[in-house]
Amino acid sequence: MSTVAVLAQAGGVEALTSTGEAIAFWIFGPVALASALGMVFARHAVHCALLLALTMFSLAILYVIQQAPFLGFTQIIVYTGAVMMLFLFVLMLVGKDSRDSVVEVLRGQRVAALVLGLGMAGLLVAALARSLTSVQPAPGAGLGPNNLGGLGRLIFTVYLGPFELTSALLITAALGAMVLAHAQSSTHEKRTQRQTVIARLRGEHARISPLPGPGVYATANSVAVPALLPDGSIAPESLSEIIESVAVDVPDTSTPDAHSLTGRSSPDRSIDAGEPNDVSTPDGSHSGTEKES
């Protein structure tokens, strides 16, 4: 491939930089290139994200060896840290569709994209190879490992206006993201507590009171334990539809039991709460628990 040849030719030029830099470049350059290619070809979106993070990390290293340590670390913190994590969060949200289908719906799109991409690369590489044959880094005054002060001075003096503008842009973006990502449930209006009570009293619900909570006499608060009505019988509404209820002792209400508050069981009166004639269990494949409506 011509690109490789050009790269090799460029590498063959008289070394104008330190050998250590060359070694670092020849390690991290190909890594960046390979992981970028991998990102394009990986079918799973999470793999893409991880490969992109690797590319960005390699670029951060290249920034650092090009005497831009501030940018390198910003790259690592902002890009590989924050931005890529954000990507991963979004991938979690839309995870269902995170796998591309292999079928290309647009006819000729892949071929055209490849041809144009190669053309772009070839043109850029050719242009660079022809025009920048013998460049070398200038011994700039502001450059060097400790250029952070110079960078800060530049940002807060010459580029103060653009800097303030970017801060306004960031705030706007944050607000915009909040507005866009906020779930607007226009179909179902949210009711206040008062409206709910009024609706209950008007008989718009199956019953006025809430469903009885689980557990009896504080012996257990597990969802699996059904509630008991004052006469000692089991409240059917307290039985969960998807969790099998455990057996519960029904205290003897005719003769006061001194141990009734302790919840100790009396075998002769226990009933099986899982009896089908007691609780009407609908289809167990329900995924959501809808207590009301």
């Binding site: 055209a112 994209a113 144009l116 991409g117 053309g119 772009m120 043109l123 850029l124 242009a127």
Partner: peptide
């Protein structure tokens, strides 16, 4: 991209 390639060319 096609346009960009043309312009660069």
């Amino acid at each position: 991209l096609g346009g960009s390639v043309l312009i660069v060319a």
